[in-house]
Computed example of a mutant assay.
Amino acid sequence: MTSIFSLRIHPGRPSQGCPEGLSEAGHTYGVRDLYRMKFRSELSQEEYLREISQDAGLPLSGDVMGGA
Rank of each mutant, 00 (worst) to 15 (best):
P14Y: 04
R32M: 12
L22A: 04
I9F: 14
T2H: 01
G67L: 13
G67N: 02
V31C: 09
R50Y: 10
R40S: 09
R13Y: 03
Y48V: 02
G21N: 13
E20R: 12
F39I: 00
S23I: 08
L49K: 11
A68E: 10
H10N: 11
L7N: 05
P19M: 02
T2Y: 07
A25P: 05
G67A: 11
L43D: 01
P14E: 11
A68Q: 07
P59I: 09
R40I: 05
A68D: 12
C18F: 13
G21H: 04
L22W: 09
S15L: 08
P59V: 03
D33K: 09
R8Q: 02
L49P: 02
E20W: 10
Y35N: 03
R50W: 12
G26N: 06
H10P: 01
G66P: 14
S23F: 03
G21W: 02
R8H: 10
M37A: 15
H27L: 00
A56Q: 11
Y29A: 06
L43S: 03
M65N: 14
P14G: 06
E46F: 02
E42H: 00
I4A: 05
G17E: 12
G57M: 05
D33I: 07
D55P: 03
F5A: 15
Q54T: 06
H10A: 12
M65P: 00
Q16D: 10
S23D: 05
L7S: 00
P14K: 12
L60R: 14
